[in-house]
């Protein structure tokens, strides 16, 4: 038994150190492409850490959004940055103008001061964490006590879609704001010509239905087990990214109001349901207990559509205008 505990400890310690090491490497690698790949690896290791911490819901979200979609966004942005800067300032991004090089003598003092400040704040924050009581249940008792009347049996879904559903409503607005912000920079993304068919196209044709099924499963199972709108939405969004990578482009007609509807349907459903409950129950987003399960499933389904559309359109906007460089290795 002691052996197992020791092994667990060792595993956690290695994982923790691995996270720090990967983060350090990702942030200080001299090559940006390498930095992003290391960052994606870091995200996957984070997912493993979430599993170790009994947070499977978070692990799913991290793997799909934190590592997967963020990674795709970063790579797409880097590819576009290189096509841009190659024309102007050659090699700015491939060999960054400011690598972590030895500092000139003038700024050595400020560098030292920075290290000192950061060390002091690390010690302070570390001590603060250390000083916290070693046993605490937080709000888990309150959640457990009300789980029966929440309409679902997965406590994380209960928190996200019922107890703290108002946060989730605002979060849907944050997603919408990201799209509006990106659009206000670029206008609606232009329609790039279709790149030639690749292996990816065949692959994505095969994978699309599988991913849609996975998303539907995650959405359905989220009521009782790890999963839910965010995980399903990000898997569906990733499907969209894969299709976009393989050269598929939505028809121009789809990019108008059907897209706008898809982007807003999650937030819109929250608002409409919120106003309805305000009218009937006198409380914003207070579902009648008997209907709670159905209402949560409805909200989650529409939120899934919005999240997927948002993530896919963010990727399209960041990567559009230029042909994707998928074969980055040839540059190395």
């Amino acid at each position: 038994m002691d052996g197992i505990i020791f092994l667990q400890w060792a595993f956690d310690a290695v994982l923790g150190l691995g996270l720090l090491w990967l983060a350090w490497r990702a942030l200080n690698s001299s090559d940006l492409f390498k930095a992003i790949v290391l960052f994606i690896a870091f995200g996957l290791l984070m997912a493993l850490a979430w599993v170790r911490l009994n947070a499977s819901d978070v692990a799913l979200a991290e793997a799909a959004i934190g590592a997967g979609l963020t990674g795709a966004l970063l790579l797409a942005a880097l590819a576009r940055l290189e096509t841009m800067t190659d024309q102007n300032v050659s090699g700015v991004s491939a060999h960054p103008a400011h690598p972590p090089s030895p500092t000139p003598a003038g700024s050595r003092f400020s560098r030292g001061l920075l290290i000192l400040l950061l060390s002091a704040s690390t010690a302070g924050m570390g001590y603060a964490v250390w000083s916290l009581p070693s046993y605490s249940t937080g709000l888990s008792m309150d959640v457990a006590a009300h789980l029966d009347s929440s309409g679902v049996s997965n406590p994380v879904t209960a928190v996200l879609l019922n107890f703290r559903s108002y946060d989730t409503l605002l979060e849907m607005i944050v997603l919408l704001l990201a799209v509006l912000g990106v659009w206000s920079l670029d206008g609606l993304p232009p329609q790039p010509e279709k790149p030639p068919a690749t292996v990816l196209e065949t692959l994505s044709r095969f994978l699309t239905p599988v991913f849609i099924l996975v998303a539907a499963y995650l959405l359905w199972v989220g009521a009782d087990a790890p999963g839910g709108a965010f995980q399903a939405g990000s898997v569906l969004g990733a499907t969209g990214v894969l299709l976009l990578l393989s050269g598929w482009r939505p028809r121009a007609r789809l990019m108008q109001w059907p897209l706008r509807l898809a982007l807003t349907t999650g937030a819109g459903a929250f608002i409409l349901l919120g106003l309805l409950t305000l009218l009937l129950e006198k409380q914003l987003l207070a579902y009648p207990v008997a209907q709670a399960g159905r209402m949560i499933l409805l909200l989650e389904s529409l939120a899934t559509v919005s999240i997927a559309a948002t993530l896919a359109i963010l990727f399209l906007s960041v990567s559009s205008g230029h042909k994707m460089k998928t074969g980055k290795e040839e540059k190395e």
Binding site: A55, T70, L73, L74, T137, V156, V174, V182
Partner: peptide, 28 residues
Amino acid sequence: SDPVPHAMVITGIVVAVSATALALALML
């Protein structure tokens, strides 16, 4: 374990990806 922080982190991850997308678009 306490599910409330889990839900908060899922919220946070979504906020983070939104901010990242906006930042990347601005950078480009």
